[in-house]
């Protein structure tokens, strides 16, 4: 079988890319190994753990369940785009640091991407709602309590921010 290739164009974290990819290349592999955006992590490759979550036109998606070709023409955001290099952290990142919401940090990029989208749409969630929103992201280290606290705090910080 000859692998079939496609040319795709997309924007990630504000940068425009044009690449030729094999049709079966997963979006997470494309981001990590073709674009060098290794902050997006892969934990299961079957859509359960949420570690690979990125934003596609603003909505959280699991990049292990998409092919790179499906991202053609879309605008993506990954964890690398949350805070400017060397600059101030995003309120969500700050809150995760302040509340010890990460241990090994492997699940963290997926959680940050899932929750930025969630908190933008739900600025004043209850703790139960935050837990529900988080429940698609597995973390094996923290027991979630500190992540939940970080999210409640981040929501408050984001409400206050202009």
């Amino acid at each position: 079988m000859q692998p079939d290739h496609h040319e795709i164009e997309l924007t990630v974290n504000g940068t425009h890319y044009r690449r030729t990819v094999e049709s079966r290349l997963l979006l997470c592999d494309f981001l990590r190994h073709e674009l060098g955006l290794a902050g997006t992590h892969v934990g299961c490759e079957h859509g359960v753990c949420g570690a690979c979550t990125i934003l596609l036109d603003g909505d959280p998606v699991r990049s292990c369940l998409m092919l790179a070709v499906q991202a053609n023409g879309h605008t993506l955001a990954t964890v690398e785009g949350l805070a400017p290099a060397g600059g101030e952290l995003h309120p969500l990142q700050q809150a995760m640091h302040a509340h010890h919401g990460l241990q090994c940090g492997y699940c963290t990029p997926g959680i940050l991407m899932t929750m930025t989208a969630y908190l933008t749409e739900h600025p004043s969630p209850s703790e139960d709602e935050v837990r529900e929103a988080l429940s698609g992201n597995l973390c094996r280290c923290t027991g979630y309590q500190n992540i939940v606290d970080a999210m409640m705090d981040a929501a408050a910080r984001m409400r206050e921010a202009p």
Partner: peptide
Amino acid sequence: VKRNEDRKLLTGQALFVDDVE
């Protein structure tokens, strides 16, 4: 004390084995 290692992990800059190219 808040953790020294967090910033790298929070910004996607920490090196895990699969990140070695």
